[in-house]
Design a protein around this nucleic acid. Structure first.
Lengths: 211, 211
DNA sequence: CACAATACTAGACCGATCGTCTAATTAACT
DNA sequence: AGTTAATTAGACGATCGGTCTAGTATTGTG
């Protein structure tokens, strides 16, 4: 698909660059996000990521102390990427709040479709694997969900203010519910290789809002 | 916890027993269900299961052709166990249909609690890992979800007949929605090590039914 | 009651993977 | 010019997962 820069790197200290430093490190993290999105942490070997980026092991352990440290960085990278995406949708004032959410869902849906439903969500994947993962990841993952939750909750509060959802709604609880169900839907879509689970869940979610 | 019979087995053909044949095989499958419920397929090594049961590797490959074949059997074992459990609740005529569902949820909830929220659902775990798993599992897992879905749908139809849910409800769709969200809730409960995700989801699900 | 067939255990073996470590290479700094 | 910093190169050992061959005890048969 995209990816893969099998370009051999010369050894030795690289010339000082003004802008893009740490290209290799960035490339490793990017590849890490892609692979962990697809296969999770345990099933992924360092070598696979290395091969993808065209980098030998020496470089990897120059930039990261261990696979565990690498994983933590991948989580952070993904979380940053994702919360930017959420803001991009949830704060877009050119749409009413509920449509912003629908737009996010549509984007995520088409993203999964574009990758043949092989890629899911790094956070969901690692959450599922948690019992076989470094325990330090737990708080990190919980934190990411918390972040997503509060961003969505704020958007739902806007919807409540706009009067498009029930005035009595507990936006925080609704947001929690959304991400719980969404992860389930992503998992199921990956399993069945189609978008129906996403559609069924989001339809039910929106139906619940107007109640 | 429970488990572990480190009792050394003597080699050679065992004396003919009348009742419990294939004890070892059964023990391996039982251990497999336990471990896969907790850690999934990829993160689990054969050795771990072997150690748990107190059986050497040779025995394993006597009973199963490969880890893949073993996994398929574990899925089947778990599916059988689970659909019996579902029937036990969903067909219990001493309760109205909606309460039967609530009873199932309560049981699953307390089961997770009893195991410190370390154990989730074999089918959900393997579904998440699917991209790193033998492709043959896909249809098997989809089939299991289909089975659960139809059992729940039937129960919801009883509820509709009883008038406790909206007459216009699409019971099949509701059942699909339930299992999507339920798996998400289990995953989240495992991550956060508490029952809140289960409660939030089930509350929202029941709220949606009366709409 | 010999002796083959059967049922199962024992653990050696190979390959893969993880993480480390030394050497090599090149640019920057002084 | 010489030293230090940054990075690549990839061999290496330890560990572990999965497979397979050999061995041992019991059953069944003529």
């Amino acid at each position: 698909m995209n990816t893969i820069i099998p370009q051999k790197k010369r050894p030795g200290r690289p010339p000082k660059q003004i802008g893009g430093q740490h290209e290799t490190r960035t490339a490793l993290l990017r590849a890490g996000v892609e692979v962990l999105t697809e296969k999770g942490f345990t099933a992924t070997g360092i070598d696979e990521i290395l091969r993808r980026v065209g980098v030998p092991k020496g470089s990897f352990y120059h930039y990261f102390n261990s696979k565990e440290a690498f994983g933590a960085d991948v989580i952070e990278t993904y979380a940053r990427y994702f919360s930017r995406k959420l803001d991009c949708y949830f704060l877009d004032e050119s749409f009413p709040a509920l449509e912003r959410i629908a737009n996010f869902i549509a984007d995520a849906r088409s993203g999964m479709q574009r990758h043949g439903f092989r890629r899911g969500c790094v956070i969901g994947n690692l959450g599922q694997e948690m019992s076989a993962l470094p325990d330090a990841y737990r708080e990190q993952l919980i934190g990411v969900f918390g972040d997503w939750e509060s961003r969505l909750a704020r958007c739902l509060e806007v919807a409540r203010a706009e009067g498009t959802i029930n005035q009595m709604s507990d936006c925080a609880a609704l947001a929690t519910f959304f991400w719980i169900g969404w992860e389930g839907a992503v998992l199921r879509a990956k399993l069945e290789l189609n978008a129906k689970p996403l559609d069924i869940f989001s339809e039910a979610f929106f139906a619940g809002l107007s109640r």
